Amino acid sequence: MNEPAELDLPVEGGTLRVLRFGRGPRIALAAHGITGSGMSFRAVARRLPDEWSLFAPDLRGRGGSAGNPGPYGLDRHALDLCRLAEHLGAGGPVALAGHSMGAYIALRAAARGPELFDRLLLVDGGLPLPVPPGADLDAVLDDTLGPALARLGRTFGTDGAYVDFFRAHPALGPHWNADIERYVRYDLTGPRGARRSKAREEAVRHDGRDLLTSADLFAADLTRLSVPALLLHAPLGMLGQEPPMLRASVVERWTGRSSCLPAELIEGSNHYTILLGAPAKTVAERFAALGG
């Protein structure tokens, strides 16, 4: 597979680094997870039909957009997606997808500018998550994100040491492949002997707290969806085991009450491999067919 083209596209206050996969005329826009990058969509993009181009931005505070100024927050990211859709979709609406935190951002963007999008694919995210009143939000993030968040405060002596850190991740190591390794290596920055993740911890924590306290906003967005939408969800969570990111009771509540949001469980996947492993083929097929 050819490596993606790296573009700098305009948003409010600057530009975002955007990875373009493919050269076809049909345009897709995809938002990544809380500590990820646009490279997380490499496996999905490769499996889209030839007539597609998938544009995957590095969100503010991550990847090639790590130096972009704040404020952060899901509304700011959703506005960025709308600006990119306006830029890319000069010939009409674009397809929209999001994974994990990116699914919540995509949902907000679709609610904010439904005329910009012709479909919405939520991948293991986008549904309101119950958080106990008075919970320590940073502690919830630490417990939920685990190694993905822990790496942001560390440096690594070599690129190989950083890759090995991810190989030890229980949701990734047993399923290691070229797409996962490319995703990991794209995230590296820093001088020799002190390599680190491009993702900025302050951006991740700000966005994570915003996600945990915005359940009412997501609920309102879901009830007024006006574009064809689909939820794909994994049976295993961020550590490759139960519970999943989206518990069955949460999925049943929101897909049962909204005819605008059917759901499909992608067997044999966890929160990461649904996008980075063999299930990416199913994600690409469902995305291309949605709304057709």
Rank of each mutant, 00 (worst) to 15 (best):
L79V: 14
L79K: 15
D80H: 06
D80A: 02
C82Y: 07
A85K: 00
E86C: 01
H87K: 10
H87A: 05
L88P: 01
G89E: 00
A90V: 14
A90P: 15
G91I: 10
A95I: 03
A95R: 13
H99S: 08
S100T: 02
M101Q: 15
M101N: 12
A103T: 08
A103K: 04
A103E: 10
Y104D: 11
Y104P: 04
A106V: 07
R108M: 05
R108W: 09
R108F: 10
A109G: 07
A109C: 07
P114S: 00
E115R: 02
L116R: 06
F117I: 00
F117P: 00
L121N: 00
V123A: 11
D124V: 04
D124L: 02
L127P: 15
L129C: 04
P130D: 15
P132F: 04
P133Y: 14
D136Q: 05
D136S: 05
L137K: 12
L137E: 07
L137R: 13
D138S: 02
A139R: 14
L141V: 03
T144L: 03
T144K: 05
L145N: 04
A148S: 14
L152N: 00
L152H: 00
G153S: 04
G153L: 01
G157F: 01
T158V: 10
T158M: 11
A161G: 14
A161K: 12
Y162V: 01
V163E: 13
D164C: 13
A168F: 07
H169P: 06
P170W: 13
P170F: 11
A171G: 13
P174V: 07
P174S: 09
P174F: 11
H175D: 15
H175E: 15
N177G: 14
D179L: 07
D179K: 09
D179A: 08
R182C: 07
Y183T: 14
